[in-house]
Structure formats: structure tokens, C-alpha cells
Amino acid sequence: MTTIPTIRVQADRFDLQMEIDALTAGRQDIGAVVSFTGLCRDEGGSLEALELEHYPGMAEAEMRRIGLEAIERFSLLGLTAIHRYGKIAPGDTIVLVVACAPHRQAAFDGANFVMDFLKTAAPFWKKEHLADGSTGFWVSAKDADDAARDKWR
């Protein structure tokens, strides 16, 4: 049976348990579920929110391409990737990846792979809004993220 990734780009929060249940309900072949949740992080109390901008249409399409590649490469039995957009306060969630496989290694690797490519290839951008009311900078892309992606080649 071909696994179809569940891909969503949304302003609303997501519910981790609901997403896991949706992938595992009624199945007995899944032995491992790995989830990754990315949160908005503040360093030193200066951040009011991150504003997530995305390229509508391409964001979903790119996440789907990444998801399909992960399913194929790690023989995943289920995969969900959700990315939020809009203003997100420190401590709130930004991204969720859930990967299901018969065994844990493929589930860990699948979730890791999806995150590494999601960060470097899915068209999302973060802008800082600062606690003093000013608009801060666009977050810079990190070489470390490119390096993390390149390890899969």
C-alpha cells in the first residue's frame, strides 16, 4: 500500500495526539512513531513574536515533495507534516512532523530527514517582532542547517 503524506500549512495550532491517532488508528503494522515539534524560541526576553511568511501553494507542494521522498527512502508507513504561519509567540508551536514505521530507526530518520529539508527547502521565512514594539530583523539562514541537509546526500 502506498503511503500518502498528510501536509498542512495553517495559522491554527495543532494537536499532537490527534495527529498521531490519525496515523495509527486501526493499524497493527506500525511499531514506531517519532514526532518532532518545533517551538518559537526567545533568547533573553527581547522577542514578542516571530512572524512566519510562506509562499502559498509552493509551501504545500515542497513539503509534499519532501514527504514523498522520506516515505520512499525510509519505507515509512505514515507521515504528517504541519507548518504554521502568521504571528507566533515565544513558547508556541511552529512545526510538527510525525513519522511512522515498523521499527524505530526508520521513524527517527524519516522525521529527521523531513525536518532537515523542511528548514532549507520549504518556502517559509521568519521575521522578528521585538518586545519594545519595533520590528526586528528577518532571521538569517544558518550554514548549520545546510550542513544538516547535506548529510543525507
Binding site: G38, L52, H83, A122, P123, W125, K126, W138, V139, A141
Partner: peptide
């Protein structure tokens, strides 16, 4: 589409 390096996730 024309845009800077991506910083999502």
C-alpha cells in the same frame, strides 16, 4: 518566485 534563503521549521 523570487525570495531569500528559507528560514522555516
Amino acid at each position: 518566485g523570487i525570495f531569500p534563503p528559507m528560514t522555516g521549521g
